[in-house]
Design a protein around this nucleic acid. Structure first.
Lengths: 108, 108
DNA sequence: TTAATGTATGAAGCTATATTCATATGTTCA
DNA sequence: TGAACATATGAATATAGCTTCATACATTAA
């Protein structure tokens, strides 16, 4: 076996495959400038797809694709209002991580 | 102009291209299970390439490639000791973000 | 110096993903 | 009902990235 995930008291082991994958998924969702901009736009409140597209400069299709991924990961939540769909950041962890990343970038 | 990066007092604008790219770079570096495992292994102290390869189950070449990227982004720091090179997490922000992500994954 | 060890790196192949285009679904208004 | 609007989605193309392999570089030991 190539990996050692046992917790047999020796020392803190490397994360197992599932934990590592989940964490990677989370960070990967934030690991692209397009999505960073979208999430950044959402930090000031819920917005619909068209507004996000206009604000970020991406096509509505592209924004919608990204939002789908973020939705599946539960980083954003969708709420339908008429023919519009408003998205908001779903998890306070997400905002925390986002701000932490912003800190890292601005204070360096 | 497709984007609005002006801070003319209206409301907090979307991050500019450079900020967004830097944040994305940071998160992308954490956005892969291999690197998450490597960084996880480094949370318990400095380790050399061979040790990291053994602990994570990846080839030394692969680990070295990953470390190069992490090094260039200043997420880890290298220190040569004889013919070994020990790596450590370079920035407390990195550890913060890592733990935040771990929280997000474990408490959900 | 030669051999062995530890790490770094370029190239190649393969997989993953982002954006666009076309189209589908659903909603409001006339 | 039909037309315009808002969003979603599948397919396709293009680009990026990961792992492996081969090899180079650096250090230590003999």
């Amino acid at each position: 076996m190539a990996e050692r995930n046992n917790n047999e008291g020796e020392e803190l082991a490397v994360l197992d495959e599932e934990q590592a994958s989940h964490m990677a998924e989370l960070f990967q969702a934030l690991g692209e400038a397009s999505r960073i901009k979208i999430i950044s736009a959402l930090t000031s409140g819920p917005k619909n797809v068209g507004a996000l597209a206009a604000e970020t400069g991406f096509s509505e299709s592209s924004v919608s694709h990204h939002l789908r991924g973020l939705r599946l990961l539960r980083l954003v939540r969708a709420e339908k209002q008429g023919r519009r769909v408003f998205y908001r950041i779903d998890d306070h962890h997400v905002l925390e991580i986002f701000r932490c990343g912003l800190d890292h970038v601005t204070h360096s």
